[in-house]
Amino acid sequence: MADILIDRVAKSFGAARALAEVSLQVADGEFVALLGPSGCGKTTLLRIVAGLETASGGRVVIGGRDVGALPPRARGIAMVFQNYAVFPHMTVADNIGFGLRMQKRPVEEVARQVGRAAEMLRISHLLDRWPARLSGGQRQRVAVARALAVQPAVLLMDEPLSNLDALLRLEMRADLKAVLREAGTTTLYVTHDQTEAMGLADRIAVMHGGVIEQIGAPGAIYARPATRFVGGFLGSPPMNFLLCSASGGRAAIGDFALAAPQDGAVMLGLRAEDAVPVGAAEGIPFDVRVVEPMGAHLLLTGAVGDQPLRAIAPPDAAIAPGARIGLRPDPARLSWFDPETGRRLEAA
């Protein structure tokens, strides 16, 4: 077990900047997700921690030891790759035991650890099989078992679920969470899937353009995004943004007014589920253009004035396309952003 300290790590590929002095601390036993769109630098950061990529600047400290000069094999890490990288020329058992055999552990210990890891991932019945005969989900379990078998101080995972189909991903996500909780391994997990990050992580670091925009618990990041980007990246449908102007501490949207943190141009961040549809006479005036029944709720797409907006309504609400309704926002769950910088504005 160990903690990870990422201290002002930077990386450039020629003139292209992939990471700009990123700092992050992962506590012993903590699960942190690096979340962001492709090209945000999350995989590069993970590979620098693994030692598969060299940083242009900064330090990586694992368990109090600066690992900058160490090769991957000396860092006390294990890794799960996006395409699994399960060796095709070894049986499942040999794959899981690979790390232990490289460490020249006694045969009985290797067998015991392999058995334990296979049991954790529920693949004990596959130990004699060749990887080519396994399904994607089974191969994924082998990759995770191989990583856990070495009982690493730190587990690194690079988009481990992205090659699985949706149903399998859901199942594997829950299994992964249970297994990692049991193992108690410090984990750094790269994903572009916000539901994966929300569901698995103790804390999420949202990355964008080579910087970490916000670090925090999933609930906190979701409820109080530090930037417009974070608000828009987390949640489905994404957060709505309404540009409005405020004076005297009140922002006007149509005939509706809300308490604003500052005067002048401000941007309201409103999540679909944080506003209740009400009659046209009250709330934010919303012109519904499309109504999509999603089962659990209705997804409404339309506009406030000329600004697009998505809202949700109870599944049995009688709302027709073309109707004008009102949206009454929950004042405690609103976010305000500076339209220029995209940074969160706090109420005075």
Partner: peptide, 15 residues
């Protein structure tokens, strides 16, 4: 040979 095989071996302690 996908480069991940070599990387996986490297991470899992192979010289």
């Amino acid at each position: 040979i996908p480069k991940e095989f070599g990387e996986a071996a490297e991470v899992f302690g192979a010289s």
